[in-house]
Write a protein that binds this DNA or RNA. Structure first.
Lengths: 209, 209
DNA sequence: TAGATTGTTAATCGATTAACAATC
DNA sequence: TAGATTGTTAATCGATTAACAATC
């Protein structure tokens, strides 16, 4: 069950792709699969699939391959989806709105429990079923509910300072949409630079074969 | 000027980070930098910085380092930002709205020239300064304006079919926000799975030190 | 049993880092 | 000139792939 070797960064980044594919196989009613099939679908070698799965403690059966549902459940467990973490969203502008309404937090290991904004005109409106709360309630809210993570949808000028404040209030993870990099001690930060992948597309198209 | 060796995938993925940092140095009025400084800022070794830049045909000067503006311009050229490509956006729902209004296409090598949606109630409204156009005008629009790229903000059910249609109409690149993978011949596809990075955050937080 | 497929070790490959001569 | 820093080659490291015994 436990992981054999420390999972490499690249393997961790592949986890969501495994997960998505397994969900699809499951929806199609498929009970078993093999490293060969997974490799074909994900454009990877069967060897790599077996290495990855084995290092995450997922095991198949010689001759028969992997049980789809069991494998999907194992990957959920490895990613921590079975113990959802509470999260708050900071910034209820257009970006915060789309994130709160389009991201399936519950299916990704999180539970959104609060949304905050500084603008008075947004207070009281709801987003994703949660009332938008004034920023100055943040401290007491954190003291009461101890959110594990925060989603930052702020202008880049205020993101770093807000991140530091949140960490001081006990937040251990930040999903950062604020168009800037953030550095904090004692917390995991994942920054989403949407634009980066658009530049990558530009590069690829200009170097297209 | 030309690239020495074929640029590795990982180096290409680092290009946007170089670009962002150089823009910042430039804004701060800094004229020169070194692989040492860039490395420190990006948490990379000076060696790697020099390898990357050299393989993109960006050169410095022994003893003095790199000229910031020249380097930024070179990277723009490598990424193709100097020859913007025309793009259309398909799907003007909440996701399409945020993408059209929050992404700086012009600064990322693209020019948004049309927005399409199938819903009658959206037709005529504007987004990012462009009137939303009915989907059945797509074909004649493409014949007239030859957009190079398309941004897909569609439900996942229709994304693959729409992508194929677009490629048949001459589109050579697709920036896909449709929560599904897409496979097409003859076009570059960059798919954005927002959720993936949230799962990565979950993994990291559950394996936090 | 024969065929299929895993789990794991060894071999290969590629990317990162170190080292250093060239030179501003 | 002396100090700094590049560009590039060689060494190292880690990730991917191949191979194959184990076994369902």
């Amino acid at each position: 069950m436990a992981q054999k070797h420390e999972a490499s960064d690249s393997a961790v980044r592949r986890l969501p792709r495994y997960y998505r594919l397994l969900q699809e196989l499951e929806r199609n009613g498929q009970n078993h699969t093999s490293s060969r099939e997974l490799g074909k679908r994900l454009d990877m070698t069967p060897s790599q699939i077996r290495q990855d799965l084995s290092c995450f403690g997922c095991h198949g059966q010689q001759g028969c391959g992997y049980a789809v549902t069991e494998l999907r459940e194992n990957i959920e467990r490895v990613m921590g989806l079975e113990q959802p973490l509470s999260a708050i969203l900071i910034g209820a502008g257009s970006l915060g709105k789309v994130v709160s309404e389009n991201v399936h937090f519950e299916q990704r290991g999180f539970r959104l429990i609060g949304i905050f904004d500084i603008k008075p005109e947004l207070i009281g409106k709801t987003l994703a079923g949660l009332a938008i709360t004034p920023m100055h309630h943040l401290e007491s809210f954190c003291a009461a509910h101890h959110p594990a993570a925060a989603v930052l949808c702020l202008p880049k000028e205020s993101a770093q300072a807000e991140a530091e404040k949140l960490v001081a209030l006990g937040v251990r993870g930040i999903w950062n949409f604020s168009h800037c990099d953030i550095v904090v001690e004692q917390a995991e930060v994942v920054t989403v630079h949407l634009d980066d992948s658009l530049m990558t597309l530009s590069y690829k198209m200009h170097n297209q074969t």
